[in-house]
Amino acid sequence: MITVFANPDRFMALSRYLTPILAAAAAALFAWGLPQALVTSPPDYQMGETVRIMYVHVPAAWWALGLYAAMGMASFVSLVWRHVLADVAARAMAPVGAVLAALCLITGSLWGRPTWGTWWEWDARLTSMLVLFITYIGYLALWAAIEDAQRAARLAAILCLVGLINLPIIRFSVDWWYTLHQPASVLRLGGSAIDPAMLSPLLIMAGAFACAAASITLLGMRSLIHRRQALAAELRLARSAP
């Protein structure tokens, strides 16, 4: 598959059609999933209606993590096979992942308010998501700080890979920390086994988020490739101008 996307031109041709298709798929899945999530699915016996926030919070958490893993793979390909497209893919996924991580934190806080009575609860998973969010910020800050695009791509790839290796360690240490300082038994966010009637809207919403994220990522990759072409052409123009 990687070789199919090998050269940017074929990628541009393919993504020209894939981007709108994915966007349409996302819209369709949202149309299908939202009524279930908001109306037809049953309220939680403890939390009542607020469990509906789960259909936004959980997909955001999944894809914030999923995108970082995908960035890790793209970074590996970029470092080992020096693929131009892999750099562009990792760079295009980062903002989407960062926004999803932020969305996950905010919806977690909104969900926690009625459930726990506070805007922010240092729950193990929310804390790990906060660390992941700062990792995204660091990744984007590194890209912004380095002028030479090629060097920035490789350095960011190293940072992303080391971050990926550390995710399980950070996750383990935060869980260990949470159990160490375990406050009174607190209702875990969505901890109870998910009622099957809730599962289908959750999966549909997750699919909708996935298509939306993929479409936005492809859009980002297209603009990054156009940007490189534009800057290179302008550079050549400036140099050859009499």
């Binding site: 966007a23 939202l34 908001l38 009542g48 209606e49 607020t50 509906r52 926030i53 936004v56 919070h57 955001a60 903002p95 989407v96 926004v99 999803l100 932020a102 969305l103 905010i106 919806t107 909104l110 969900w111 308010r113 009625p114 988020f209 939306a212 479409s215 936005i216 859009l219 980002g220 603009s223």
Partner: peptide, 23 residues
């Protein structure tokens, strides 16, 4: 509760739409 749910979905829609528009 409806306020929190409404805000959550609104923010989700806003962030996805914002990302799509900027992209």
């Amino acid at each position: 509760h409806t306020a929190y749910i409404a805000w959550s979905y609104a923010l989700a829609a806003l962030s996805l739409a914002g990302l799509a528009f900027v992209g």
